[in-house]
């Protein structure tokens, strides 16, 4: 292993989190399919979760955040599920009314 990886630290996890986060942001920005945008959000939330877990991991640092670092991702995951359910319902409704899932076509406020 190269020197950078001699010891896995919080930073390494943060890099993974950053990559996931940025990919998520890009997905949200570039995807035209409503469900693709939704997937971007999931990626983004996951990037955040990786950070939380890394900060909370006693394995990486003994003086880590501890339990909070695990409990917050739990809430994030649960809320992501809720968010996905609602977003999907909205996407389906949008699809029903406009027969498309292209978010660029969603220009009216009225559903």
């Amino acid at each position: 292993m190269c020197g950078l990886l001699a010891q896995i630290t919080v930073s390494h996890y943060l890099v993974v989190g950053a990559v996931l986060f940025v990919t998520g942001v890009l997905c949200m920005a570039t995807k035209r399919n409503a469900l693709g945008v939704l997937m971007g959000i999931e990626l983004l939330l996951n990037g955040a979760n990786v950070n939380f877990v890394a900060f909370g991991s006693k394995l990486l640092r003994a003086d880590a955040l501890g339990l909070d670092g695990q409990l917050i991702p739990l809430f994030v995951i649960v809320l992501a599920a809720a968010e996905a359910a609602v977003a999907l319902a909205i996407a389906l409704n949008f699809y029903n009314n406009h027969t498309t899932v292209d978010v660029d076509k969603a220009e009216e406020l009225k559903g």
Partner: peptide
């Protein structure tokens, strides 16, 4: 898998 590695099994 990363979560498991970081010791957050439950997560």
């Amino acid at each position: 898998g990363l979560f498991f590695l970081a010791g957050a099994e439950f997560v």
